[in-house]
Simulated scan of single mutants.
Amino acid sequence: MQFGIFTVSDVTTDPTTGETPTETERMRAMMRIAQHADQAGLDVFATGEHHNPPFVASSPTTLLGYLAASTGNIVLSTSTTLITTNDPVKIAEDYATLQVLSDGRMDLMMGRGNTGPVYPWFGQDIRQGIPLAFENYALLRRLWEEEVVDWEGRFRTPLQGFTSTPRPLDGVPPFVWHGSIRSPEIAEQAAYYGDGFLHNNIFWPIGHTKQMVNYYRRRFEHYGHGRADQAIVGLGGQAFMRRNSQDAWNEFRPYFDNAPVYGHGPSMEDFTTTTPLTVGSPQQVIERYAEMREHVGDYQRQLFLVDHAGLPLKTVLEQIDLLAEEVVPALRAEMEAKRPAHVPANPPSHAERVAAARAAEAEQAAEPVKEGENA
């Protein structure tokens, strides 16, 4: 199973010091966080995509391309690529380039984002969000899978004889997740294509997460991609840890109370009860997240948000170390001990996807030619 971190790239004032990092400082901190996660042995680093303050992750492939050259093992991903407001041609080009630069050490998650004004900023209508997600992704797949594309749709100019460059590494496109918090249509889309589904449930009760994941699983099986329990699932999460639980509560409370994303709303006590946010000792985080499989089944990727709300870089790096040294080994051992042999432990790697593609090609080539087919 893969464990990692994701960033929303917020630039937030530290409520304990009153200091606000510059955008440059925040971006450099994100690079340091990803590199530290790689050195600590985490499996995934993912970045969101936003085009408005107070966020700075407006160009995910630029950041991930830099990290491809400055990390060695960690999978580089997105915790949203905006399929609705980015041109699918540019997505095809940018992420194939990242795939080549990282030697396949990447994947990406499609989503619609959580900022309504982004639609008119990029010339789109938010009321068409779901149709845009469907049409743009269908075109993206064709751009990756077909050498020459002729295409016409509702939301962009037609393509005639178009070839996206560079071509996907080894002729195999990146693995794709679809992320949605509340839209079953997106879970349906993920299931239809046999892609992964990630429910970033950081603001939601586990009952809602269970409902969305189970719907995706049923539809994955319906479309013939395997059994429901073999569907590729990821979850979001949040944690703040100190070895002493009360120290964690005392230290994190001012960040929680003042954070733009959830400050001035429910109390930290209520929020930790109703969402996956876990504030306490590493053992408490282990116990809380070990329960997730009881609700959603065996899953393949768990991402944690640890660098938000104005937390200083030093503190974030300490959180990564606690995850890597104490939480992840225990969770991995427990999750894998209970996973049935027929259920994938990880999302498919690039090497596995290439092997599957070559096996399918060999099987197709070995099929006997039907009588008269070449006449």
Rank of each mutant, 00 (worst) to 15 (best):
T272N: 08
E93W: 13
P184S: 01
V233Q: 07
Y95H: 09
M109A: 15
R142L: 07
T17V: 09
I232F: 14
R32F: 03
D10K: 01
E367M: 15
L132Y: 00
T273W: 13
T22N: 11
S180W: 01
D229Q: 12
V306F: 01
H308R: 06
K210S: 11
V89C: 13
R156K: 08
F256E: 09
E336M: 04
A365Q: 15
H222T: 13
G236S: 04
A69V: 04
E185G: 03
P282D: 03
E152H: 14
H264G: 08
A333K: 13
E146Y: 04
P54A: 05
G129A: 14
R339H: 02
R26T: 12
G123Q: 07
A366P: 09
N244A: 02
L322A: 01
S70T: 15
F122A: 05
E363L: 09
I186F: 00
A345H: 11
L76E: 02
H308Q: 11
V11G: 09
I130C: 00
P348M: 08
A191E: 02
N244W: 00
Q160F: 12
P266I: 10
G196P: 01
V306S: 00
A37T: 05
N374A: 14
R182Q: 06
T274Y: 15
G372N: 09
E25H: 08
R227D: 11
G237Y: 02
D247W: 03
A231K: 13
A96W: 02
N250A: 15
D170V: 02
S349W: 05
A68Y: 09
A259F: 13
M30Y: 14
T71I: 10
A360G: 00
L64F: 05
M27D: 10
N258Y: 04
I5E: 03
Q189K: 07
M31L: 15
S267H: 06
T80M: 14
F271I: 01
M292T: 04
L63D: 03
G265C: 03
A69C: 12
F6H: 12
F3A: 03
P312Y: 06
N114Y: 13
E147H: 12
L159G: 03
P54F: 06
Q211N: 06
E352W: 04
E23W: 09
T81H: 08
G161A: 09
T165H: 10
I126C: 02
L98P: 04
L64T: 02
V327S: 06
T163W: 10
V149W: 01
G226Q: 10
G171V: 00
E251K: 12
P166D: 05
E251F: 10
V327A: 01
F134D: 05
N73R: 15
Y66F: 15
R28V: 06
K210P: 05
A57H: 00
S102R: 05
E371P: 08
M109C: 09
T20Y: 06
N52L: 12
T16Y: 11
V343C: 03
G280L: 08
I286R: 11
R218H: 08
E367Q: 15
G41Q: 04
D321T: 13
R32C: 07
E135M: 03
D307W: 12
S281Q: 10
A330C: 10
L311F: 05
V44G: 00
